[in-house]
Amino acid sequence: MSVFSTIVSQIFNGLQSGSVYALVALGYSMVYGIIMLLNFAHGDIIMVGAYIVWVLMSLLTLPPVIGTVAAVVGCTLLGIIIEKVAYAPLRKSPRLSLLITAIGVSFFLENIAQLVMGAGSKPMPTIIKGTNIEIGDAHISFVAIVTIIVSVITMLLLTLLVQKTKMGKAMRAVSEDMDSAKLMGININRTISFTFAVGSALAGIAAVLYSCAYPQASPTMGSMLGLKAFVAAVLGGIGSIPGAMIGGFAIGLLEAFVSAAGLSVWKDGVVFTILIIVLIVKPTGIMGRTMSEKV
């Protein structure tokens, strides 16, 4: 393979995993933006999504469309339930209590999955089928192209939702100033629920796309994915929606090129080094801004 084709195929590899990181990072960032919570259970929602696909497609041999829709709906509901049951009662508690609860929810989901599905991993069925594409002598997998296109469309829709709709504007208002949003007549609880629903729906989409790339479901599959998406969210500027997208793609590309350079063992280490560097050099991330209040 020529250098050119290596670069091309690594770019597509990077964009593929970057798309998934970006979708997951968006969920992290939106939730952080609205209630200042690092929702460490977010990665585990993806794991649940993957099991939903496995149960429906492998166990019940239903078609991929049903598996996909069920995963997205299931993750959305799970996100709403987690918020209502675990986080809403702590609305007035210190942020540390929320954080600890999120870690608790994460362990809970992982252990429930282990109990119900067993500790071993389940082979995922083929969800997306199609012919690969050749650019020069570089092979681009069909799954990679679908993943990138689906993610980009999802992100465009999300941007429209947040920028143009009444609910999206309410989300931005709540994330900027909760009390002031209340004075506008915005129902805070409903807005927070909606944010969790949207973030979790993105996690559901990510679950399907991730299962196409790494066709295995296991109880802990969400934790490393979740952590990397968290790094992506921090790199982009946590709380920022375009930041999460940029951060996700950046982490995906970085991983692909580290692997291509023959350092795939170091892949995870490099990602977490990025986290440390960002936190030291620019804790607000690429798109994060520190707003100074005008008097």
Binding site: K166, K169, A170, R172, A173, E176, D177, D179, S180, A181, L183, M184, I186, M291, E293, K294
Partner: peptide, 15 residues
């Protein structure tokens, strides 16, 4: 307590 990151028009819409 206006929404500093939103536009003037969006602030009014929130009202």
């Amino acid at each position: 307590r206006i929404f500093l990151q939103m536009t003037v028009l969006e602030n009014l819409e929130m009202g």
